[in-house]
Design a binder for these strands. Sequence first.
RNA 1: GCCGAUGUAGCUCAGCUGGUAGAGCAGCUGAUUUGUAAUCAGCUGGUCGGCGGUUCGAAUCCGUCCAUCGGCUCCA
Length: 647
Amino acid sequence: MIRITLPDNSVRQYPEGVTGLDIAKSISEGLARNVLSVMVDGTVQDATRTIEKDASVRLLTWNDPEGKATMWHSSAHLMAEAIELLYPGAKFGIGPDVENGFYYDIDFGSQTISSDDFPKIEKKILELAREKQQYLRKEVSKEEAIRYFTRKGDEYKIELIQDLPDGSITFYESGKFTDLCRGPHLPDTGFIKAVKLLNIAGAYWRGDEKRKQLTRIYGITFPKQKELDDFLILLEEAKKRDHRKLGKELELFAFSQKVGLGLPLWLPRGAQLRERLEMFLKKVQKKAGYQQVMCPHIGNVELYKTSGHYQKYGESSFRPISTPVEGEEFFLKPMNCPHHCEIYKTSPRSYRDLPIRLAEFGTVYRYEQSGELHGLTRVRGFTQDDAHIFCTPEQVKDEFKGVMDIVMLIFKALDFKDFIVQISLRDPNNKEKYIGSDENWEKAETAIMEVAGERGLTTVVVPGEAAFYGPKMDFMVKDALGRKWQLGTIQVDYNLPERFDLEYIGADNQKHRPVMIHRAPFGSMERFVAVLLEHTAGDFPLWLTPDQAIVLPISEKYQDYAKKVLNLLNNSEIRTLIDDRNEKAGKKIRDAEMKKIPYMLVVGEREENEGTISVRRHGQGDLGPVKVEDFIKKVQEEISNELGEIN
RNA sequence: GCCGAUGUAGCUCAGCUGGUAGAGCAGCUGAUUUGUAAUCAGCUGGUCGGCGGUUCGAAUCCGUCCAUCGGCUCCA
């Protein structure tokens, strides 16, 4: 007998060779029907696989992320089986589970396939699912594995197998489909009750641009039809939050083919919003000891040759601009740092001057591949809320702390709660590919880790992800559809001070090399506004929103009073509009609600007589009449609450 | 850049298998003077993404280019 410890710490005795499914059955039949896979001593395995020794076991169902992963991974196999039956000769790449479902990369050969084929495939999948095909695990030798796929003519699988050590190869067989797979899988396909193929896309084999492009089909499955229905509703809701749609509806920004792709045009309301964000950050930065600077949008190519950006961006980006002078070339700036380095160099610096913090809302231009462009999140001309801190190696930690506090302040003022902090360190096994001394790297990396710890941030540490010039910390936020976008970034740089030969005189009267920290709390104004739009669904915080209130006179008779209210509010710096169209109140309210204006102020006979306004809050409804002065006070309070200490 | 899909009025969309365009909203004009999510009537508005081809005839079929969307690669 072996001892099985369950999550509630209870211990049960079972014979050797017991399966997860057996354990579930011994607890309850209902549980057994819902077990998708089991976690045995921290490793997920098939519910039907035997357990030979004492272990702690967790039974995984649809409510566990690992259970979902098992379901979706098995679904990928099932889809492959369906496709193999429908499209003989299709070859298969890889088919993993992902955050919301699964995909399979398939080479359809000369056959073409589009989303029109989805219903047919979905039907086949459900048909096979109902057969309750068991997923059978089989250990095979490398030779045997290669022989199988050679016979089948699937070169992708052969390539995968060749990279695997012998003795670790397993096959899973379900129905007529056999796949190279580590598992784990469902006991049988009967658990899959609802399926939806989501989209179809090209994907390079093994993510390599130079290799063949396979057809990737994304899908998702559920144990109940109802769950699929709910998921589809959720998708629809997410689409409504798309910043491209909201940006158009709220008249914030636009694109024009004539201006050029990836070059956003900020409309008046969007420009105002952006300006407000900039003012907010400038205020914060001023308090934190930053100095604003300004630089032109182009620079002599020599500047970028010195910085190394010409080598990086020169070929794949906007071409240099030539001038009437033979051999003279300018380059649209892809980065602000070289300019700031030159500003640093305008006078000799002492250690007493450091840190020097130069900030600029600097617009940069990068020629992104056309297919990468995406609304405001990926554009060809964008404005970074950039700053460069020049400091001594000893100051790196404090400066990092200061920047992190700014990022946190912003996230708080804008109510971003769900973000990921990634720390990118150098690859410890490959230290020579990084520039800068071992000692300084060590210092900076520990500083970053310590600061993150002191501020109580949960972080993801990724060794080997650092840039060659220094370690960094990035802040990522998800958009409405769960896609991750990097916003703020803080990067230590040992490279540019070297290239620009930056120095300061230390207390020892010797020349020293300063460390440079690049930082952009928003990342870029464009991307930040995009993510903010999706985050708030267009219901911006009151301090930020373009129009804070709108006065709605019941009829033309009350226009004079309405205008009086309008002036009072605007004079109190509450951004207020008036709707003096010849429309009924219901219509005006509907329109204002759709424009997401926070406060609707209805005025008619009653209000005029009593010097009040009837306040309606967006999304909340009628709040009743208040005196105009009281409303002004209320709004001002609400704004200072939102901004907290910054105001 | 690559794979797939899409492109009709300012916006959202109809327009079946080819017979030179239609609705709702928005806009304009007028009537109405209105109390918490759409008052009524009339009118304006489109080289059906661009170019080429097939055809007596193309929004519709074919080719090509452009743009957009979903991915891949890449990145703030």
